[in-house]
Write a protein that binds this DNA or RNA. Structure first.
Lengths: 189, 189
DNA sequence: ACACCTCTTGATCGCCATACAAGAGTGGTA
DNA sequence: TACCACTCTTGTATGGCGATCAAGAGGTGT
């Protein structure tokens, strides 16, 4: 065993720092949050962040991981609802972190690690959506349909629309997906 | 008439600076292009850019205006093609400036002028698309449909997909739009 | 000859992300 | 006890950035 026990405390401290970063990133945005402000929020010296987490992109990735894990956990509770409602829920749920969507896209190519995270994010979420759309759309078009839906959600997050307009987009999207309860075998209406 | 004749020369010089900025923004991206590098590209002192154009956001807006004007002019030549082809053309045409899409979204809220430009951009392009979709989709859903298409184009630009996948998304999108030649009154096939 | 305006510049400021090196605290060892 | 090794923390640079300022160069009108 090493001298000053590692692991436990280190993990906790890292989580505290990432939580502070998450608060500021969500509230003020990535660009408007300086590493100095982040350290101040967490009540540590500026360099301590680098010791526990890494550079600013590493902090962003850690924050995104936390947000994604939480979002996926919450999603489990509504995964059995109709697709239209799932879509609406997703958009409203992600609205709190909408500033980070454009940040990630803008920083792809500047940070290889972030690029990798972005790829993994899309693989994960698109996998879920693809599974949910199985049987609801033409199998040959499912990949394109998944991408259209994901792009629409991202667009709804990066653009300031009224809630009624957001709902209209979600509903129009879901309109061409056959709801599970209306799958072939049952007549509509 | 003022002393040292304004207007003509000033306009030319400004255009030169914006052209230089456009080259660098498109090639390296907005963040990776420093005002110093821009001045070097245009062979002027760093401050000269501020004199002719303004701060970095003003430069970005000027570049975006130039790109938009050129794009709209080019669009006129294909505006009579089928919607599916127009969509494909738009995505491929805008690919050269794809890095700027995320930049604009990321900087909204940091620059009021850019925010205004973004609003005007969407009003303009969505107006065009809405006119093109008149009669091709259910009138009550046309707003949502326009937004879905615009978000899809933006998504195709901010994400690195193969050409085949880009085409698949465009085709899937256009699949539910009735082509002008297939409008009610003529039987399909 | 003088005043005036446009344009250009070098020097400078403040902020930022990040690196460095020294120090404080703590556990193991002799 | 004294010493060392390791983890952690900090104060202090460093280099680059966007942006500003005050001074001057060069042409224009009176």
């Amino acid at each position: 065993m090493p001298s000053t026990r590692p692991g436990r405390d280190r993990e906790e401290k890292r989580t505290e720092l990432v939580d502070a970063a998450r608060r500021l990133f969500v509230q003020d945005g990535y660009d408007a949050t300086s590493m100095a402000a982040l350290a101040r929020e967490a009540r540590v010296a500026a360099n301590t962040v680098y010791w526990y987490v890494g550079d600013k992109d590493d902090v962003l990735i850690a924050v995104l991981d936390a947000l994604l894990a939480e979002g996926l956990a919450d999603y489990a509770s509504i995964a059995d609802r109709p697709l239209r409602e799932q879509l609406r829920w997703t958009v409203e749920r992600l609205r709190g972190m909408r500033r980070l969507v454009a940040t990630v896209h803008a920083r792809i190519g500047r940070s290889a690690a972030l690029d990798a995270w972005h790829d993994a994010f899309h693989a994960s979420t698109e996998g879920i959506l693809r599974a949910a759309l199985e049987g609801a759309v033409d199998p040959g078009a499912i990949d394109a349909e998944v991408r259209i839906a994901v792009f629409a959600v991202e667009g709804l997050l990066t653009h300031e629309l009224a809630e009624q307009e957001r709902r209209a987009v979600c509903d129009q999207l879901a309109a061409r997906w056959v709801a599970p309860e209306d799958r072939p075998g049952r007549p509509p209406g």
